Simulated assay, not measured.
Amino acid sequence: MKTLKTKYNKVLRRYYKAVKWMDDEARTEAEINKYYGEFQKILEQLNAIIRELIKNGYKPTCNEILEGFNDN
Rank of each mutant, 00 (worst) to 15 (best):
M1E: 07
K2W: 02
K2M: 02
K2Q: 06
T3Y: 10
T3K: 13
L4Y: 04
T6E: 09
T6P: 02
K7R: 15
K7N: 14
K7G: 07
Y8C: 06
Y8F: 13
N9Y: 04
K10I: 08
V11I: 14
R13P: 05
R13Q: 14
Y15S: 04
Y15K: 09
Y16A: 02
K17H: 15
A18Y: 15
A18H: 15
A18D: 15
V19A: 06
V19S: 04
M22A: 15
D23T: 13
D24I: 13
E25C: 07
E25S: 13
A26F: 09
R27I: 08
R27K: 15
R27D: 08
R27F: 08
R27N: 14
T28I: 04
T28K: 00
E29S: 14
E29D: 14
A30T: 12
A30I: 08
A30L: 03
A30N: 08
E31P: 07
E31H: 11
I32L: 02
N33V: 06
N33F: 10
K34Y: 05
K34E: 03
Y36Q: 11
Y36R: 08
G37F: 01
G37E: 08
G37A: 11
F39A: 01
Q40K: 13
Q40M: 11
Q40C: 08
Q40H: 07
K41N: 12
K41P: 05
I42P: 02
I42A: 03
I42E: 03
I42K: 04
L43D: 08
L43E: 12
E44I: 10
E44H: 11
Q45W: 05
Q45L: 06
L46S: 01
L46D: 01
L46V: 01
N47W: 10
A48C: 13
A48Y: 10
I49R: 10
I50C: 00
L53R: 01
I54Q: 02
I54K: 03
I54N: 00
K55V: 00
K55L: 01
N56E: 15
N56K: 14
N56D: 13
N56P: 03
N56S: 12
G57F: 06
G57N: 07
Y58N: 04
P60F: 03
E64G: 04
G68S: 00
G68M: 02
F69T: 00
F69Y: 08
F69I: 03
N70V: 11
N70I: 10
D71G: 09
N72M: 13
N72I: 14
N72K: 10
